[in-house]
Computed example of a mutant assay.
Amino acid sequence: MDDLGFVRETGADTPPLSATARSAARRRLQKAILEESRLDASAVSRRVVFRFAMAATVAVSAAGTAYVVSPDDRKTHTPRIETVSAAKVLHNAADRSRSGSASLPVPRNDQYVYTETFITQTPLKGGKTKTWHDESWLSVDGSRPSRREEHGKVHYDAPLKKNVVVSPPNEYSQLKKWPTDPDELLKWLGHGQNRIAGPPRHEGDDTTALPRFDPDMSVYTEACLLMKGPRVMPPGLQAAAFEALAKLPRVRVDRDEVDALGRHGIGVSYPGTSFSLVFDRTTYDYLGMRQKGSHAELIDGDWRQVDWYWEMTSREKVGVVNRIGQRP
Rank of each mutant, 00 (worst) to 15 (best):
P271Q: 10
D285R: 06
T273W: 02
V278K: 00
E257K: 14
S294D: 14
R252L: 09
R250K: 13
F275G: 01
D259H: 10
I299Y: 04
D259P: 08
A240H: 00
G236T: 11
G293H: 08
R281T: 03
D300P: 03
L248Y: 08
F279T: 01
L248M: 09
S276N: 03
D300Q: 11
A260C: 13
A246W: 00
K247I: 04
L261H: 12
P230V: 14
E243D: 13
G267A: 07
L245I: 06
S274W: 07
T283W: 05
I299T: 15
L245F: 13
V268T: 02
K247N: 11
G262M: 07
P249Q: 08
A296P: 13
A241T: 13
T283K: 06
E243L: 04
A240I: 00
S269M: 06
G267P: 07
Q238T: 12
H295Q: 14
M227I: 00
F242C: 04
S294H: 15
E257R: 15
T282E: 14
A241D: 05
A244Q: 05
M227E: 02
G272H: 05
P249I: 09
V278Y: 01
V258N: 12
R263P: 04
F279R: 02
L237D: 02
Y270N: 03
M233R: 13
E243R: 08
V268R: 00
R250P: 03
H264Q: 15
P249L: 08
R263M: 12
G262H: 10
S294P: 12
V232Y: 10
L261G: 09
S274H: 13
A296E: 13
A241Y: 03
G288C: 12
Y270T: 03
A240S: 06
P235H: 10
P249D: 07
Q291D: 05
V258P: 07
V268P: 01
A239W: 10
L277Q: 14
R255M: 05
E297P: 02
S294A: 15
P271N: 06
G272S: 05
G293M: 11
G288I: 04
L248I: 14
R281G: 05
P234G: 06
D254F: 03
A241K: 01
P230D: 14
G288H: 09
P249N: 04
S276Q: 01
L248N: 06
R290F: 01
F275K: 03
R255Q: 06
R263Y: 08
Y270M: 05
G265I: 00
Q238R: 15
G272I: 05
I299S: 07
Y270K: 07
I266R: 07
D259M: 11
H264V: 03
F275R: 05
A260K: 03
A244I: 03
R255K: 08
G267I: 01
V258M: 14
Y284A: 08
L287T: 00
D254Q: 09
A296S: 11
I266P: 01
A241W: 02
F242D: 02
V253T: 15
H264T: 08
G236K: 07
S269V: 03
Y284R: 04
E297N: 11
Q291N: 09
P234N: 10
G236E: 07
A296D: 10
